[in-house]
């Protein structure tokens, strides 16, 4: 697995370096700005969490430009491990995004105070970022292995929009269940429910993707 992680890391590295630069520049700007209107910091948190994840899964496409995807099947790793390494890499890059988002909001609050009405709003922003990323990955991998490299771009767009759509759907469902102002407890439970749904779909997507990948021929 060590070699697979290194492989995925190198595939993601160039994009991640560029995105890190952008995230740092935007982060400095967002932190420096007054956060009385919190839309900038909200946008920043979602951008870094989803952005690092998106870059990670988009990097798979690079393997199809050469015979490496086929070559990898001839080295001493199982197909299952190849697929799992992609999922694990996405989680690692999501964690990087979470760190960026956490540092960003922490610095913004330290400099300008808490811009949100309720502390649970920050928690819910993390739920949105993590949830969208997890659903995006859960949709992307089986479709990618099923649809092939040549449809990579459309699968990526469908996965991102799908992730956002599922989170919006869950939010609507929660709003229907709890009309009016939600208590802190209800908000936290709703967030945990959304994260659990994301984690469950991500987990279910692993064996599904493995199954599709094992039937694939190169």
């Amino acid at each position: 697995m060590r070699g697979l992680f290194r492989n995925n890391f190198y595939a993601t590295l160039l994009g991640a370096e560029a995105f890190t630069g952008i995230a740092l520049l935007v982060g400095v700007f967002v932190v420096a700005m007054d956060n009385a209107i919190p839309s900038l910091i909200i946008g920043y948190m979602l951008l870094v969490m989803i952005g690092f994840s998106l870059n990670s899964i988009a990097s798979i496409r690079k393997e199809s430009a050469t015979k490496w995807g086929k070559y990898k099947l001839t080295v001493p790793v199982r197909k299952r491990d190849i697929v799992i390494s992609f999922f694990a890499s996405q989680l690692l890059w999501l964690a990087v995004g979470i760190v960026f988002a956490g540092v960003g909001i922490a610095l913004s609050i330290a400099l300008h105070g808490n811009p949100f009405d309720r502390n649970t709003d920050i928690f819910m922003l993390f739920v949105l970022g993590i949830g969208i990323s997890l659903f995006m990955g859960a949709i992307f991998f089986p479709l990618y292995f099923l649809g092939g490299e040549e449809r990579n771009e459309v699968i990526l767009v469908v996965s991102l929009l799908g992730g956002i759509g599922v989170i919006m759907g869950l939010t609507t469902l929660i709003n229907i269940m709890y009309p009016g102002n939600m208590t802190t407890w209800q908000t936290v439970m709703s967030g945990i429910f959304m994260m659990a749904c994301g984690a469950a779909s991500f987990t279910v997507s692993v064996p599904l993707s493995v199954g599709v990948f094992q039937r694939k021929e190169y």
Binding site: R2, G3, R6, K67, W68
Partner: peptide, 20 residues
């Protein structure tokens, strides 16, 4: 092309060391 073009031979070696 057996290997990704964005790698160096040094990176290839590190990946292979983790596979074999």
């Amino acid at each position: 092309d057996n290997f990704p073009g964005f790698w160096t031979a040094g990176q290839l070696s590190k990946v292979m060391a983790g596979l074999f």
